[in-house]
Design a protein around this nucleic acid. Sequence first.
DNA 1: ACGATTTGACCGCA
DNA 2: TGCGGTCAAATCGT
Length: 324
Amino acid sequence: MELLNCEQKNLLSELIHGLNAAKQLQAQLGADPSPRPSSSSYSSCLTTEMKETLLHQIVSSYEKAILMVNTTQHNPTTETVVTADPVSGKVPESPTSIIGSPGSEEFLDGGLSSKKRKMLPKWTEQVRICPERGLEGPHDDVFSWRKYGQKDILGAKYPRSYYRCTFRNTQHCYATKQVQRSDGDPTIFEVTYRGTHTCAQRNPPPEKRESKPNPTVVNSQYDLLDNLRTNLTARRPRTTNGIEGDGFSFPVTSPFYSYESINGDFGNGGATYCHVGSSGPSDFTGLISTNTSTGSSPIFDVDFHFDPTAEIDTTFHTFLHDTM
DNA sequence: ACGATTTGACCGCA
DNA sequence: TGCGGTCAAATCGT
């Protein structure tokens, strides 16, 4: 273990900065349901310009943070760049973020329809393979995949490989990924993930992540944590045709474990301590509680603390690298 | 023997 | 109708 180096501090600083900006924006958006900035009756509300500034700060902070993760990686074989899904425009989610549950309806019929497949979250990573390590294939992520197909793609020099979760049948996990070697640079693989893991792999696998003070992870709380991420999405006012505007989603979801619930759970006004990172609560801890004053769509109060003197587990970085 | 990979066939969508 | 994505039988590796 080593103390945080400068880049790691910068990374966390950017993440915290982005989080704070998001919180401000969320608070303002939550307080101001009116889409008309000029007609707002709330004197404390931010102007549209200020909101845009905050949004810019959030996006900028996360972009910097991601860049830092990419450039400070120690993984000798690969280098990963994450791009948002150009269709949805969403900031990529982690492969381990949980959407849906194995017990939900669409998972009970033994498979997903093509429509439902299309609805699954999708994001792309660009993975560079270190030439001196050979071109044995794209980087390993923390998940176990099984190849189920390969196709020659029109206009592409290299075939595309199709993988699905090894536990598709046993655990009804419908995460898939596609791997396509870049035409321009054969050392770059584009890895497109679709769907999120609902299998047991979403917990840190023993071979990759040490399950130290084993966080108490209950499915429902995982779902709540995912809800949290969803609810932390900065919402812009609806447009005139009633369609939700573009939003910003938090990219950091994977190393996000709850380890202690107090006063029940999120759903009934309780609170849960969380930490980012897998080494223990001291890495980056926070208290998440529901704000029940907002009616049917609960707003989560997030209060994160980071102790700059605390040691940080390098698996956190590896995990971010592998999954973002 | 069992699980993973390969590969041609099939299907849905634009 | 062509293309991308998936299926499933055949094959391979341990």
